[in-house]
Amino acid sequence: METCDERGRIRRPYIRTFLQRRMTLLNIDGYPVLQLIESGRTVQLDRELLRQQFPEGDAP
């Protein structure tokens, strides 16, 4: 079963699963870095919180 179309875009039925997996990775300790708003129709990325949770240059 293909989850992407010929252009590499995620097919509509798989978008919610794709986003939920990204939310699991990014929303550490319940901080809403990535969230669905407006009844799940809009994705919101909190860039400042993303920078706080994942600061650049801290990797070994």
Rank of each mutant, 00 (worst) to 15 (best):
R22I: 10
M23P: 03
M23R: 03
M23Y: 08
M23I: 04
T24Q: 03
T24F: 11
T24H: 10
L25N: 00
L25T: 09
L25P: 01
L25C: 04
L25Y: 00
L25Q: 05
L25H: 05
L26V: 11
L26R: 06
L26T: 02
L26S: 07
L26P: 10
L26F: 10
N27W: 06
I28G: 07
I28S: 13
I28V: 11
D29S: 15
D29V: 14
G30N: 01
G30V: 04
Y31E: 15
Y31S: 09
Y31I: 09
Y31K: 12
Y31Q: 10
P32S: 12
P32C: 09
V33D: 00
V33N: 05
L34P: 00
L34S: 03
L34F: 06
L34N: 00
Q35F: 06
Q35Y: 02
Q35M: 14
L36G: 05
L36D: 02
L36Y: 14
L36V: 03
I37Y: 12
I37G: 03
E38W: 15
E38L: 15
E38Q: 15
S39D: 12
S39K: 12
S39Y: 06
G40W: 10
G40A: 13
G40C: 08
G40H: 04
T42P: 15
T42Y: 12
V43R: 02
Q44L: 12
L45Q: 05
L45W: 00
L45R: 00
D46M: 11
D46F: 04
D46Y: 06
R47N: 03
R47A: 03
R47V: 04
E48M: 15
E48R: 02
E48Q: 07
E48P: 01
E48F: 03
L49W: 13
L49Q: 11
L49E: 13
L50Y: 13
L50R: 14
L50A: 04
R51P: 10
R51K: 09
R51Q: 05
Q52Y: 07
Q52L: 05
Q53D: 03
Q53V: 13
F54V: 08
F54R: 09
P55V: 13
P55Y: 15
E56K: 07
E56A: 07
E56N: 01
G57M: 08
G57V: 01
G57I: 05
